[in-house]
Design a protein around this nucleic acid. Structure first.
Ligand SMILES: [Mn+2]
Ligand SMILES: [Mn+2]
Ligand SMILES: [Zn+2]
Ligand SMILES: [Zn+2]
Lengths: 147, 147
DNA sequence: TCTTAAATAGGATTAATTCTTATTTGTCAA
DNA sequence: TTGACAAATAAGAATTAATCCTATTTAAGA
C-alpha cells in the first residue's frame, strides 16, 4: 500500500475517532496503521507483536481493548471464525470470505454475483440486518492436495 | 421433535459411527440426542450441562472431545462465530444463519434465492470449496428496539 | 469369554480474554 | 499556555475456554 494511501486512511480514521470523542493516542494510531497494512485478518496477538516493535512496552490489553473499541465505532470488523482467537478486518467494504480449513487463512474475494444478496422477506420483516456476507469453507491453493 | 424422528436420526448416527469405526458408547449417544434436540447451536458447555442430568459424572472433556469427533465425521458442524466459545450445529443440511449481535442467538433460515450460490470461477479454479453459507449480522425481533 | 485398542473421568495445564488499579496523557476551557 | 480532569494506558491478576495427561474402564471383534 502506498504511503499516501495509508496516510489518507489514517486521516479518515482520526476524523472518525474525533466524531466519537475518542482521544487520538499514538498507540491507537500505531495499532490502526499496523492493521490496515496487514493482509491476513490478524489476531489481537499478531497486532500486538507488530505494534510492540514500535512501542516496546505497549500492553496486550491495550491492543485488544483498542481493537474492540475500533470495532465499536465501525473502523474495523470482527470477522467470523470457527473457534480460536478473534480475528480483525480493516477492510469494512462489502466483500466475502473463503476460510481454508487446513491453514486457517481467510481469503477475501469480491463477486458481482453476490452484489446484492437480497434478504428474504420473512427475515427482513422480523430482523434488522446490519451486514451480509457469503462464507465459504474449503482449502486454499497452497493446502489443496496437488496431483 | 417426534420420538420416532429422533430415533431415526440416532439410528443413522450409529451407522455413521460404525462406518468410521467409532465405538457406540452411551455417552456418545446421549450427547448426540441432546444435540439434535437443541435449537440453539449450543456450546460444548451447554451440551455438557444437559448431558450431565443423565450422566452425572460425565466430564466436560468427554463432551468437548466427542463434539469435535462428531464434527470430524461430519455428523455435526462447527458454526461460524464472532468470538467466544465454539458452537455446534446438528443440522448439516444446507441453510443460512442470522447472528443477533445483541443476544448472540444464531437463527437458521433457508432461502431458495441462495439455493445454489455459485462460486466465482476465479475462486473455483484455485480453491476446493467444501461448504457455502450466507451469514447475516443483525438484531433479532426480541432485541430490535421497538417503537 | 478373552483381548486389546479406544474411550472415559478427573485433574492439571495452556491459551484467550477480561478485569483491576495505579499512573499517565490528550483535550478543552480558562 | 496552563491547569483540570476524564479517558486511556501498563502491568499483572483473574476468568473463561480449550486441551492435555494418565490411570481406569469398556465396546467390539476373535
Ligand atoms: Mn476480509
Ligand atoms: Mn444452523
Ligand atoms: Zn490453506
Ligand atoms: Zn437477539
Amino acid at each position: 500500500m502506498q504511503n499516501t494511501v495509508i496516510d489518507q486512511r489514517v486521516q479518515l480514521f482520526i476524523e472518525t475517532c474525533r466524531r466519537h470523542h475518542l482521544k487520538i493516542t499514538p498507540q491507537r494510531v500505531a495499532i490502526y496503521r499496523v492493521l490496515i497494512q496487514s493482509k491476513q485478518h490478524p489476531t489481537a496477538d499478531r497486532v500486538f507483536r507488530a505494534v510492540k516493535k514500535e512501542f516496546p512496552n505497549i500492553s496486550f490489553d491495550t491492543v485488544n481493548r483498542t481493537l474492540l473499541t475500533f470495532a465499536g465505532i465501525g473502523v474495523v470488523d470482527v470477522v467470523e471464525t470457527f473457534g480460536g482467537p478473534k480475528r480483525f478486518d480493516p477492510d469494512i467494504t462489502d466483500h466475502h470470505h473463503l476460510h481454508c480449513m487446513a491453514c486457517g487463512r481467510i481469503i477475501d474475494f469480491a463477486y458481482e454475483g453476490y452484489a446484492r444478496l437480497e434478504v428474504p422477506k420473512t427475515i427482513a420483516s422480523t430482523f434488522k440486518v446490519i451486514s451480509r456476507r457469503v462464507v465459504l469453507k474449503g482449502l486454499c491453493d497452497a493446502c489443496s492436495p496437488k496431483q
